[in-house]
Amino acid sequence: MAKVHIPFMQTGALAVGGRLLDEDERSVQAWQDRPSTLTRGHRACQGCAEALAARWVLDTAMEVTGGKLMVANATGCLEVFSTLYPESAWRVPWIHSLFANAASVATGIAATNHAKGRDDIRVIAQGGDGGTADIGMACLSGMFERNDDVLYVCYDNQAYMNTGVQRSGATPPAARTSTTPAVGLSPGNTFGQGKFVPKIAMAHEIPYVATATVADLRDLEAKVRTAMKHRGARYLHILVTCPLGWGTKTAASIKMARLATQCGLFPVFEAEYGDITGVTPIRSRVPVEDYLRPQRRFAHLFGPRGDEAALERIRGQAERNIRQYHLLEEGVLA
């Protein structure tokens, strides 16, 4: 396992994974010799939640597997900002092949390892929402239905940020992107379109599906641990704030992810073999406006020429999530 000495730049329980907690309750991030899979020096934007999530996911997986981990990465921000020849920020066996095929490449890695009797080596595939929900959907679905021993992690920032914030199949309704501009009669992304990949994953009845956000990193870490306990195809969908694409303050990435969950627009849950087994309830509900207003991609919904009808539809969506996933009922499973 590639471990490096991490000079902690901050102190405090939340900043470095709970160093004030008991030893066994601490996050991997609390170790000064943690397996730093994604090291400093990469080229991610300030406030990039994808980089944060990727490091937590892979560091946790490295710890769980004792360093026996291989990673296939789809084309996208994560790949571009982490590797530009001759430099790489990865401290894990890592391969980037194409945009659409991370799931298949991971399947191949797992196949060779299995053929060589090395089932102890685990495989993670990762990509953005475009490489997952859109162009990579066929490979992903194939990996799911074959139940290949791969954990696929989608870092969902809700648009093609790498190429300049174009709309993806995961872009929320009304959001302004460079291909769904805030002009015309129905500005922003079209209502009634888009897909929520966790549900598609659940339809494959794979061993484990979970959603998470960068607002609750301990939850994310726990879900990676659960995922790695299972064999077969697993899917982890993480909402990651993109200050560039969302038009938010770089310091607000964690807060934005939290607001997404607390307004009901992003349900946090886990499922096994197609059935939901756990839901993270909303602790302190906020109106959807609290989440939308700070984001420039939704700016056209507000102000004197705002779009109350669109806001009403978004509220309806939050209501529906809350009902469907029982987000306000403590201890109730769907």
Partner: peptide, 12 residues
């Protein structure tokens, strides 16, 4: 071909 790429990259 993508599975082949992964499998070959893993040394198979």
């Amino acid at each position: 071909m993508s599975v082949s790429i992964g499998a070959s990259a893993a040394g198979g």
